[in-house]
Write a protein that binds this DNA or RNA. Structure first.
Lengths: 181, 181
DNA sequence: ACCTGCATGTAAGTCGTTACATGATTGA
DNA sequence: TCAATCATGTAACGACTTACATGCAGGT
């Protein structure tokens, strides 16, 4: 068994795009899924070993080679399908920014304004990045069957950022106009 | 030392609103901070004990009483201020819905459409709840100095939900119109 | 008499990160 | 030759959840 079905899903899914080394897999997860997923080495290596033992991935190059490429087997693809079909399990929310703002009376209004301005600026910067990535992706339309699905996740990031900017702006306006210190 | 500064922050913050029992604290965190924070009993009790030992909270009623109320001490308030001023540490993102959609080619278009419709409906329902809560909160304007800060976090939820609905709608339109199976 | 809700805690287990240890390859 | 990057793994630790164990109070 892999460490968790969520990690297993990300690993099998990554290999369903194309075979690669554990190292490349981690980079791909960081660079491509980065805005909605993350895995660390400490998860990826044990998971790959477990998946190999279960016959869900095939290791080419062997453990002694300087680099081994993992590829999905038919049973691995079936396993991925099963995992993807499982109900979505939401992580319980933990938003450090909102926690600090909620206790804003203790933190002080000025600090809250700083936090909000910061959040807005980061959301704006992030939005620019996503829009650039979307433009790049749009240029390669049709190159891969994964294209429409990759686009979905980028759009999610874009909508989130826009909402973040709008929220921070609205809050800044009301808080700045507030006479109470 | 408490288990983690994040849990400590939530616990001290809760008691900064008003003194209460561990049980009530957990309920308050679930009901009031629920849309952006969560803590379980297994975290709250040990944290309260550690905080009492450190002198940051005072326990009234003692461990033998059927119910003991915890109150913030001056040093606890100072500790809370320090914690709130610490830089926000973002949890690494883990969005199970987006992970599934990203591998949508394997999952199948129909399943993806289901997921999106479901996400949209849940976002809509959630939005209604938040708007109700905001109306309720607006009615008690000025009753507590925490008011403007509570409002911020509710607004965040509302903006998030609206973005979620708009995103799902946009994705549904493009995916449904897509001829590729 | 019994059930529900309030209340307090512990223990085991899962999940995940971080730091450490190691070594090959490649380009400056 | 030296640094950076690619590459593979392990061990220790930390955080958090879940399930369990217990008991009182109040209403039906």
């Amino acid at each position: 068994m892999a460490r968790s079905s969520q990690t297993e899903m990300a690993v099998l899914g990554g290999l369903s795009i194309e075979p690669m080394t554990a190292y490349a897999l981690r980079e791909a997860i960081r660079d491509v899924l980065g805005h909605f997923w993350s895995e660390s080495f400490g998860q990826i290596y044990p998971t790959l070993n477990a998946l190999e033992e279960a016959g869900h991935v095939r290791r080419e190059g062997g453990p002694r080679a300087r680099s081994s490429v993992y590829a999905l087997t038919p049973s691995g693809l079936a396993r991925l399908r099963d995992l993807l079909a499982e109900p979505v399990q939401e992580a319980q929310p933990r938003n450090g920014l909102l926690l600090r703002l909620f206790f804003g009376r203790v933190l002080g209004r000025d600090r809250c304004l700083e936090l909000l301005r910061d959040a807005r600026d980061r959301a704006r910067a992030q939005l620019g990045e996503y829009e650039g990535m979307l433009a790049q992706l749009t240029a390669t339309e049709g190159h891969t069957p994964d294209w429409p699905y990759m686009r979905l996740t980028l759009l999610a990031g874009i909508h989130q950022c826009r909402a973040g900017v709008a929220w921070a702006d609205e809050c800044l306006t009301t808080l700045e106009g507030d006479p109470t210190p």
